[in-house]
Nucleic acid binder design. Structure first.
Lengths: 233, 233
DNA sequence: GGAGGCGCGTGATTCCAGTCACATGAACTT
DNA sequence: AAGTTCATGTGACTGGAATCACGCGCCTCC
């Protein structure tokens, strides 16, 4: 499907590029849609494209030796994934799966590598992105150290809260929230455990379901306290 | 203390650099020794140097919100750490601690950034290093998904086995093995649990202590089987 | 050479999250 | 409209790791 330069221009990382370069990239890119549960990037193979997420939510997942699913990170609209191949020639280390129906743009690695050579600011930006990924993985790992499991779930929920709402601490809404199972694999807990924590949060009016595609957070302050361990669930 | 260009040249990542550049870097670098438990890099602050490890073993550690220690990765001699600051202007996300007495070389970030600008192959190499870090963190995360805890410990032990020994599968030795506690925080288990797994491995003659600074692995094949879940401890 | 700290070893106890089993309802497919 | 799948909700049970408590031996440092 057709990819316009304007579409590429909506992604922060590509914005600094001049229109001619964007057009050039757009010509080589393809727009791909995936249904929920669709496999966007495959683990173990050498992916030859970076995946920009235009709409929806993705999850990076890995599997243990004995086949259990492990959640690594979420990807929100405007972000991208699969950039590891730009930096070395190893295979994609994890699967990337669509949590919702998604609209993505696949840009060939080779094309982006060319652009990197001509625009050093792109190298900087992509390097920074990789650094962010390391920080994110590190933080997610530290969550698993929490002995209090309700706290773990609240931390993960807190991460899903939009940045602007975190400042104001008023009620907000999380769109396309991951399912309990998808949260569970991020935190190394069972699906039932996540359900029970949500049950408690709902009973206390801290969160509230608003249809399948959105979750109301009524009491952000309490959620934050639980996440930080200031108060116990 | 004095750092010679020859010393820097022993590190694979710096080897491609011409002697004049190495000399220039050496002048700005400093050799620092740390005792066991010494804090090599501090979390939360902007470190202004990369740390090359000449001798000993380091561990990257983070802390949970409630203060529990979490192990992230090990660093062996010849490798380096603290390179995140080359790619963005954020602070060091984790502590790096000396597991043994160590000899390190601190090279200022600014100096390395200059070198990066002049030698694109350094950018490539450092990017590849960051990519490797991501893969490593991902793999370590997948270990935590293993429901069988003995298997987790065996996997971690397997990671510590020198690469050459993994091919031959004969007995080998792990130098400066981490303590049980240091392994425990890598795997999200208690120190006692690690001790009990080691106890079993020793009873079955699979591993054997050889002084405080080395661990014999008699039966690499069995260790591998346990790590892969082919056989149960 | 005594003292303290630390790494390791080990049993007893506890308790909490995983697992299992099943129910319910919504969103699809056919 | 029936059937299927999936997300969620919930109770009962249990297993296994955390925790606690303590002992032992080996350092290092006064």
């Amino acid at each position: 499907m057709l990819v316009t330069p304007e579409l590429l221009n909506t992604f922060p990382i590509l914005k600094p590029l001049p229109p001619t370069v964007l057009s050039h990239l757009a010509l080589q890119s393809s727009l791909r849609k995936f249904a929920r549960r669709g496999i966007v990037l495959k683990s173990g193979v050498r992916e030859e494209s970076i995946c920009f997420l235009f709409e929806g939510r993705l999850q990076g997942v890995d599997f243990t030796i004995d086949g259990r699913e492990v959640g690594l990170y979420f990807v929100d609209a405007g972000d991208f994934c699969g950039e590891l191949g730009l930096f070395d020639d190893g295979p994609q280390p994890e699967y990337v799966i669509a949590l919702t129906p998604v609209v993505t743009i696949f840009v060939p690695l080779a094309a982006l590598r060319e652009v990197m050579l001509k625009f050093p600011e792109m190298i900087t930006a992509l390097g920074a992105k990789l650094a962010t990924r390391v920080r994110q993985l590190t933080f997610q790992r530290s969550l698993l150290g929490l002995p209090n499991i309700a706290q773990r779930v609240c931390c993960q929920l807190w991460l899903l809260v939009p940045a602007d709402a975190k400042l104001v601490l008023r009620h907000t809404v999380i769109n396309n929230p991951p399912t309990h199972l998808e949260i569970a694999i991020m935190l190394n807990v069972s699906r039932e455990t996540v359900t029970r924590v949500f049950q408690t949060l709902q009973n206390r009016q801290i969160v509230k379901r608003a249809g399948p595609a959105s979750l109301l957070v009524n009491d952000l302050k309490s959620l934050k306290d639980f996440a930080e361990g200031t108060r116990d669930l």
